[in-house]
Nucleic acid binder design. Structure first.
Lengths: 350, 350
DNA sequence: TGTAGATGCGCACACGTGTGCATTTGAGGA
DNA sequence: TCCTCAAATGCACACGTGTGCGCATCTACA
């Protein structure tokens, strides 16, 4: 007869808390379960008539594919791990927002891991492997080489964003810190300032250091000629409070800089507020300030900060395109470096 | 002999891109795979000697459990869906940050879904079901009752945060909008203002409307006595630009309010900047402003906004505790309503 | 020594999907 | 009518884990 293919022990009649499976659809449409699978995935040779009937049946029963089971079979899920921390950094949040959109757009789902404590970094990244992730984006922290090996062995692509990029086998996407530092220098020099400073978190991050070094390199000729002076500056945290505190200390000194480049916009905002409201300085007359990132607050009327813009959206799309190259295509990987252009946004703070 | 339990066809010797499975651990430790499973999950009666040997072997091989397979078996993953949108709203980001931490802390993982287009809401929420999520938190949009039924049927708990809470079977966690509206009214009245306004996005959200209504109710006695006046105000978007534009229009009129309560802090910041920098008004002398949320920017020196604080961390922990009640315990659910207290933060804008 | 109970462990099935291979069906030609 | 070829579809296994049930081993006691 041929209509006894399905064992009748799992009819799934009562509307209990199980989902509708492809077997239910198959039985209802009078075909084999494998035919349902082929209809949905699109490959295989199925007659148009059968395909229509199956799709209609699936729709009618409200069939939702079980991604867990599919991932099990494929030995690869459609999750992309996002390793991040410090959602207090508004640029990172903006980037994350676009990253999530971009990942969804190519049919994957973001699995966010927050690693606020650096010592949990390795453990958290290994956790991602437990979910058979298709790829990983690291926006915070520095994965150890040992961890990198695990991902290489499992053939899972990793993209580092605005990181040093020492990890073997991982792609790197950076904004153009060098151009940014140079543009900042030009802006401050054009404003006629002669005592420059670079303010960033003490110890510093990879990005911050790169920006500072490029800044110094750009003013080197004028330094050599004695035309301008340079003072390296430090703050305790890379946020508003860090900038504010640093401003109180630095700007209170008799011989304070009159033009400061900050490693991040938020630092610059704190610095500006300390200068204007606590020390009575005028911006940009007494103090010119340049930031980096162009977060939304920088364009607000109360700040109107001159800054180096890196587009969070472009950065996200670049990141995802790098990732997609490995996830969808054949395997292969490669320490490729992509650089995102930056742009000077002229406002009134410099 | 008894040492032929394992079919030798899947030895997994070469370090290819497969992970180490529990079968590998079992073979290496000389026990059955089920014994490994019992050792790791902790239940079952295993001799201390065997347990030690298995755990040590697992560690040595670098065994990582396959969560996909485990979820498959349990018919439930340890993912928690977070339905959100608009990561431009800083309070929501802050909340999300604490939410992710809290979810990780109880051993689950966040699966973030961004629903920027409301028309995709239903589809996106159904997508979550494909991942056998253990629970869902909705921080944006309003799920249709029909969608709610799907989750009830699948016995997946849903928590709505700062939403109307019309969804059958879903828990609701709100901040105390009523108390917030009342406190804002008291602050503006105490500042000696007589022409009050409530500024929020036109059309409004559930939370915004609740705040506005409570505000009006609180000033009702003075309205009745003619002591104060009230004007409802609207802006195009619930952000800085919306507040800024609305400020230009409203405050330019001859008979403008002198005390305005804003539905969100960001609106208040835009309003303040329009008043101070475009219209030359003094805050709080000419215009007193009160916001809602206490985002980090509000405490910055350039704004120093008087506002109603809702703790993002408390809200997140309350949300997760509600969720955990259903995820870990026996099933059962119930339209419970939790309210988070708010607090007036007095600064210089009112 | 025989029996009962307790303890430790292995067998085998289930979970829902994808896919290689075999089988069936239909059309067309000799 | 029989054979061939191709298209369509069903069978059965694999993926890695959890767990009910039964078997083996051991101890205690008559």
């Amino acid at each position: 007869m041929g209509d006894e293919q399905q064992r009748p022990d799992k009819i799934n009649t009562s509307p209990d808390h199980r989902g509708v499976t492809s077997a239910d659809v198959a039985r209802e449409a009078g075909v084999a379960r494998s035919t349902v699978s082929r209809c949905l995935s699109g490959d295989g040779r199925i007659s148009e008539e059968t395909r229509q009937r199956v799709l209609e049946t699936a729709e009618r029963l409200g069939y939702q594919i079980n991604q867990i089971a599919r991932s099990m079979n494929r030995r690869k899920s459609d999750l992309v791990g996002l390793v991040t921390s410090g959602l207090q950094d508004p640029f990172r949040v903006q980037f994350l927002h676009h990253l999530i959109s971009a990942i969804q757009k190519i049919g994957y789902r973001p699995l966010v891991i927050d690693v606020s404590e650096p010592e949990h970094m390795s453990r958290s990244m290994l956790h991602l492997l437990q979910y058979q992730v298709a790829g990983v984006v690291v926006t915070s922290g520095s994965p150890s080489p040992e961890i990198g090996q695990h991902f290489i062995r499992r053939n899972v692509p990793v993209v580092l964003v605005n990181r040093a990029g020492l990890l073997e086998g991982a792609d790197v996407v950076n904004c153009d810190n060098e151009a940014g530092g140079r543009l900042a220098a030009e802006a401050l020099l054009a404003a006629g300032k002669h005592h420059l400073g670079f303010l960033n978190m003490s110890g510093g991050t990879y990005s911050g250091n790169a920006r500072g070094e490029a800044f110094v390199a750009a003013i080197a000729p004028r330094l050599a000629s004695g035309e301008v002076r340079f003072t390296p500056l430090g703050c305790r945290s890379a946020d508003y409070d860090g900038g504010f505190q640093a401003g109180l200390e630095i700007l209170g000194r008799p011989d304070a800089p009159d033009g400061i480049f900050c490693g991040k916009d938020h630092i610059a905002l704190g610095l500006m507020d300390a200068a204007r409201f606590e020390l009575g300085l005028k911006v940009p007359q007494d103090l010119a300030v340049v930031g980096f990132d162009d977060i939304t607050a920088s364009s607000q009327r109360a700040y109107d900060l001159t800054t180096i813009r890196q587009s969070a959206q472009d950065l996200a799309e670049l990141t995802v395109s790098r990732l997609a190259r490995f996830m969808t295509g054949p395997d292969g990987r490669g320490m490729k470096r992509a650089v995102l252009p930056v742009e000077l946004i002229r406002r009134t703070s410099a």
